[in-house]
Simulated scan of single mutants.
Amino acid sequence: MSQSTDPTAAVTPPLPLIVSAGEALIDLVTGGGNAWHAHPGGAAWNVARACAALGVPSAFAGAVGQDNFGDDLKRESDAAGLDLRFLQQLPAPTLIAVVYSATPPAYRFLGENSADLLFDPAQLPDGWLSQARWMHVGGISLSRWPLADTLLALIDHAKAAGVKISFDPNARITHRHPDYPAVFERVLRAADLIKFSDEDLDFFYPKTTEEEALRLLRGLNHDVPIVITRGAQGATLYHSAGTVNLPTFPVQVADTVGAGDALCAGLLVSATRRPEAIWTEHLRVGLKAAAVACAHAGAYAPTQADLDAMS
């Protein structure tokens, strides 16, 4: 006798193809006077959200607090279509970035003993490493301990399982930590894709020409594709076939918030969907995603329809 199936039974969703690991936080932005505006953010979380918006199963792997800000991040993660099995809510405060001046930009982080530091990869779903194609890391998470050591171990496990590593250091004041350079070098050596902005390059390689910085990077990782973004001037791709400069896609710019994260998402989504394509093609998708983000206010996550609508 055949067994009947229950159409109402829960179906386990497929595991994500792209996992972005690190920090999710709340940007607490001054509105002038006593007014403050809270916005979900964090480099790793923004990349994951943008990957999901572009239609690839994605997850943010990290921890937030069991507080109102953590609830906000969980709700927005769910709305973005992220795999919530990778988001941990723990009894500690959510990490906060306080942007206390808009012009000139000035900020500080409230994160002592915060939940992000307690992220536990052992609690991630079984089998995720066999499904994931890319794991993205960067932001401030690699300069915050013990989270940095946790992520370094996770990178090693991912590499051993055949998962490719994407790295966007995304320079911030926390990267002045004296122990960060060793972490920076270790992740550079492990990476299968590296993305810097030109400002990042100046931050990490001060008083050094771009040519000299590239020579140092190649000494650590000879074959990795390296993308240098240049704002309105487009981006440069350094890879084994040579050097390519690509222009931006022209848009009416609302602001540039989240453009770098959108570009990373475009690169990862393109590389996941078309691993056989050349990196120039992946970068074009990334630049298109960044342009769409710039055309919208705030950290907008571009959709595939947005990209398809661009020339």
Rank of each mutant, 00 (worst) to 15 (best):
K207H: 15
G242T: 07
A35Q: 14
L268C: 04
P7Y: 01
R284M: 11
P16V: 11
N245T: 14
A50N: 08
A190G: 03
G162H: 12
F249M: 11
A305E: 12
G234W: 04
L188R: 10
S143W: 13
A38M: 09
Q233P: 02
I173Q: 15
L147C: 04
N245R: 13
W279D: 11
A61L: 04
P302E: 01
C51Y: 05
Q88P: 09
A171I: 09
P40R: 12
F203C: 12
C51E: 04
L216Q: 15
A97Y: 07
T229L: 13
A59F: 08
V19Q: 00
M135E: 05
T256S: 15
A24E: 00
A213V: 11
G231L: 00
L263G: 00
T243K: 14
S141P: 03
L267T: 03
A161K: 03
A148C: 08
M310T: 05
Y238D: 04
A290Y: 06
T303L: 02
L15G: 09
L95S: 15
P146N: 01
Q304W: 12
S141G: 12
V56G: 05
F60C: 05
G41F: 05
D149S: 15
P178N: 11
R133Y: 07
H296R: 15
L214T: 02
D120M: 09
A63S: 15
T229Y: 10
S58K: 08
A132M: 09
L307E: 00
I26H: 09
D200P: 13
D223W: 07
D71L: 14
D6F: 07
V11M: 10
A92W: 12
P121S: 09
D6G: 04
P302W: 01
L193W: 09
A48W: 00
D6I: 02
A161V: 06
A38K: 13
V47H: 00
G65A: 07
N46P: 03
L216I: 08
A289W: 01
N46C: 05
L82S: 01
P178G: 07
T8W: 09
T272R: 08
A305N: 02
T272H: 10
P178T: 11
G266L: 09
S2L: 14
N170H: 02
F204T: 12
L110M: 13
V29H: 06
G162V: 12
Q3T: 12
R85C: 01
L54S: 01
T94R: 03
T236K: 10
V64I: 06
N170V: 05
V56P: 07
P181W: 11
P169N: 08
R176C: 12
